[in-house]
Design a protein around this nucleic acid. Structure first.
Length: 780
DNA sequence: ATTAGGG
DNA sequence: CCCTAAT
């Protein structure tokens, strides 16, 4: 069985040597695991060993990543790449591709016929070299990868790169001077270490990188070698399709960026009169159509920023004649007659500042808030924060657009229509009522127009039986909204991240007239009562907002109590509908699940009016909640029964724990995101991609209250239980037989897992390699 | 979306 | 069972 691939490999190797000079490696990459097999095999290959022997002799520990690999190829988009220098090698590459397919197919079928347990991937795995690490001095020298170069990929390079990768050193750090090929996105390095890959196609060999904007790709299964030609045609289509998709995606992104000015969707109704005692009468933006004269691209930044907080800023820029004004002495504003202030990015970044800046250090509330925000942002929005920070750093004075994207400081005696009052308990400094404020020297006052474009609606949690009527659901929502409004609100002022507590000082004293300061001026709406979270909403469209606005959760309304049986018996638990604005909109959860949703949605009870919009309007976004409501209730504890334990043990014995080798290979090949997205495509290729997930799916699918995390945790405790003496164990005793199986399975799978770990010491028989490897390890 | 690991 | 980081 040894010589199966000898000839193929030899040919591949030869072609490889011609096609893949070092200078081109950074573009080629070796994420493609067959390639890495070959690379890893090179030193041994030279010694006359063939791949299969190496596999069976476990001599490929250091770098082998393709054994048992199904013939999955990846054909990503590769449009913008210039391939002209490579044209000559089309034949070589074409041949290489064919060979890869063929060898992969043979490998795959070979492994299928192997005696290995189907549940146990018995191979060794070494993390495949990342393309990011493939840069060498040679690569730096040659600006244009010269495929005709005679430089070849030497084994030492492989080892070095593997070592580098094993050290987890940042790719950028290892090759700082390397100037990227245009086709590569820096983002891919930053955001997705597992992203990137090698393209092996009829069209040539190249690398790709997954980025936020270019994450296209397709996983192809090409097990039938004789269908290569068909594959070719298909590939062409695929590439075209991917191109199309990417283009569409770009357009969509553009839409995302630019469509927030939608006049229809953005106008906001006046706040509900329900604003109780109106300790805060909230500024209102009337329903003026919002028509931006600005070219879209000029305001794109602002819109991006808008999206950052999932703020659906509604509202509009009001004509000056109707803009609400807040006035203060002119001398505070300097001599700008009309000052164009920074647009939303400044506001927003200022907001960001206040969110993350000084504000958090002293005020426990802020801390709570910050905590919450961190949770929220950590979830999915890291890059957004990144954008915001970027914008903040790049804030350059009022270079931005004119038109409506500004906040004006205008003369007080302009006709104004003060339908907004920034209520101040002491009523001294902020007056929106022009009539009262104009009596002070008009000439020395200038007014600032504010409009608050929208208010965030607190997240509403509503539990309602699935048998309930829509009408009752509406009533439930109404109750929740009402509950929010009952608390009453007051307004706080946030200046440069700090709460302004002294109500008697003037705006001048705080320098609020200063444009810079204005950037960081914000208003908070805080509940006067602690437990009832406040909200500003308009009764008319509140439900729309509640369900459609991707708003930051403001508060968790104590669930409208339902006769849910919180007591054990899962059968009696009634499903509930959780109306969660973010993601679980249409999910049905068990009560426990619904409760568990709370973990990220607490502690934002304060509405903040923050200057954040490109139209110079104030937006109200959540800041924090005054008092940390009780944490989201823990899920009900449901001890595992012996039967469950048995099922778990059985499943783990079958599937194993953790990620499979196959999974890791896939990560290398196509990136984790794609593996996630396409995981179902692999289900028939490997016993399990995500093992805990499969354990859950196959063994506990009907147990809705058991998540894969639960199962993983239970396994953890089971292992622990099995290791301790029976006297130390608590709870329902687990049969020793089961515990023994637990230990056995754990031992087996942890051993398997250990094989996947990057070995620090090369196992290669070649002593030269060891030397090189270890010395290079020191280097990193 | 999943896993790893500490609490 | 929760939480978080990493992937």
């Amino acid at each position: 069985m040894g010589q199966c691939f000898s000839d193929d490999l030899r040919e591949i190797f030869e072609i490889w040597m011609r096609v893949a000079p070092v200078a081109a490696l950074e573009e080629i990459g070796v994420d493609f695991c067959e390639i890495s097999v070959f690379i890893a095999a090179i030193p041994l290959f030279r010694d006359g060993l063939n791949l299969w022997d190496m596999v069976s002799q476990k001599k490929l520990d250091n770098g082998f990543g393709g054994y048992r690999l199904p013939p999955i190829l990846h054909f990503p988009k590769s449009t913008k790449r210039k391939r002209s220098p490579r044209k000559k090698h089309d034949d070589d590459q074409s041949r290489l591709f064919d060979l890869l397919v063929e060898v992969a197919g043979k490998l795959s079928s070979k492994s299928e016929n192997s005696t290995l347990s189907p549940c146990c991937i018995n191979g060794t795995y070494k993390k495949v070299v990342k393309r990011d690490l493939l840069c060498t001095e040679e690569a730096q020298k040659s600006e244009t990868p010269d495929l005709l170069s005679n430089t070849v990929l030497a084994p030492e390079i492989v080892i070095k790169r593997q070592a580098t990768y094993a050290s987890k050193e940042l790719p950028q750090a290892s090759v700082p001077e390397y100037s990227e090929p245009p086709c590569l996105s820096v983002k891919s390095k930053i955001h997705d270490s597992a992203a990137g890959g090698l393209v092996v196609s009829k069209g040539g060999i190249g690398c790709f990188a997954y980025t936020d904007t270019c994450r296209s790709g397709l996983i192809r299964k090409s097990s039938v070698i004789t269908e290569v030609e068909e594959e070719k045609a298909e590939l062409t289509r695929v590439v075209k399709y991917e191109d199309q998709m990417t283009q569409n995606r770009s357009e969509l992104n553009s839409m995302d960026m630019y469509c927030l000015e939608d006049p229809m969707g953005l106008d906001v109704k006046p706040p509900a009169p329900a604003s109780s005692d109106s300790s805060a009468e909230v500024p209102v933006c009337r329903d003026y159509p919002c028509i931006s004269p600005m070219p879209k691209h000029e305001s794109g930044m602002e819109h991006i920023v808008h999206k950052d907080d999932d703020d659906n800023f509604s509202g509009c820029t009001l004509p000056s004649s109707t803009t609400n004004k807040v006035s203060w002495p002119t001398n505070c504003t300097g001599d700008h007659g009309k000052r164009r202030l920074s647009t939303s990015k400044y506001w927003k970044t200022a907001t960001n500042m206040s969110k993350y800046g000084q504000i958090s250090h002293h005020d426990p509330k802020r801390k709570a808030f910050l905590h919450g925000k961190q949770m929220c942002y950590t979830r999915q929005r890291t890059h957004r924060s990144y954008f915001k920070r970027r914008f903040f750093e790049h804030r350059s004075a009022s270079t931005s657009n004119g038109g409506i994207f500004r906040m004006e400081v205008s003369n007080m005696h302009e006709k104004n229509n003060n339908n907004v009052k920034m209520h101040n308990p002491h009523g001294t400094d902020i007056q929106a009522d022009g009539a009262t404020s104009t009596k002070v020297e008009q000439s020395s006052y200038k007014s600032v127009k504010f409009s608050i474009k929208s208010f965030k609606i607190p997240e509403l949690y509503i539990e309602i039986p699935e048998t309930a009527t829509v009408g009752s659901l509406k009533r439930a929502v109404m109750e929740a909204v009402t509950a929010i409004l009952q608390g009453g609100l007051r307004v706080g002022v946030i200046l440069q991240g700090k709460r302004v507590r002294d109500d008697n000082k003037t705006l001048c004293q705080f320098g609020i007239s200063n444009g810079e300061t204005l950037n960081s001026l914000g208003f908070t709406l805080e509940p006067t009562e602690t437990q009832t979270p406040p909200s500003l909403t308009c009764s008319k469209n509140s439900h729309i907002l509640c369900f459609n606005d991707a708003v930051e959760p403001l508060a968790r309304i104590p669930s409208i109590s339902l006769p849910t049986d919180q007591d054990s018996s899962a059968a009696s638990l009634q499903p509930v509908v959780t109306t969660c604005p973010e993601s679980d909109r249409d999910s049905v959860h068990s009560p426990a699940d619904a409760l568990s949703l709370d973990k990220t949605t607490e502690n934002k009870l304060v509405l903040v009016a923050l200057p954040a919009t490109s139209v110079g309007a104030l937006a109200v976004v959540p800041l924090c909640k005054p008092k940390r409501l009780e944490l989201a209730q823990r899920r009900i504890r449901r001890p595992f029964s012996v039967a469950e334990v048995e099922a778990l043990v059985e499943a783990v014995e079958k599937f194993g724990t953790g990620r499979s080798l196959f999974c890791l290979i896939l990560f290398q090949m196509i990136g984790q995101s794609l593996v996630n997205a396409k995981r179902d495509h692999f289900s028939h290729l490997s016993p399990s991609i995500f093992r805990w997930r499969d354990v859950k799916l196959r063994a506990f699918d009907s147990a809705k209250h058991r998540t894969y995390v639960d199962l993983k945790d239970k396994w953890k405790t089971l292992v622990h239980t099995a290791k301790i003496s029976p006297q130390q164990r608590r709870g329902e005793p687990v049969p020793q037989e089961l515990l023994d199986r637990v230990l056995a399975a754990q031992a087996h799978w942890s051993q398997q897992h250990a094989k996947l770990q990057i070995k620090e010491e090369p196992v290669c028989s070649d002593p030269k390699q060891q030397l090189t490897s270890s010395s290079l390890l020191e280097e990193t």
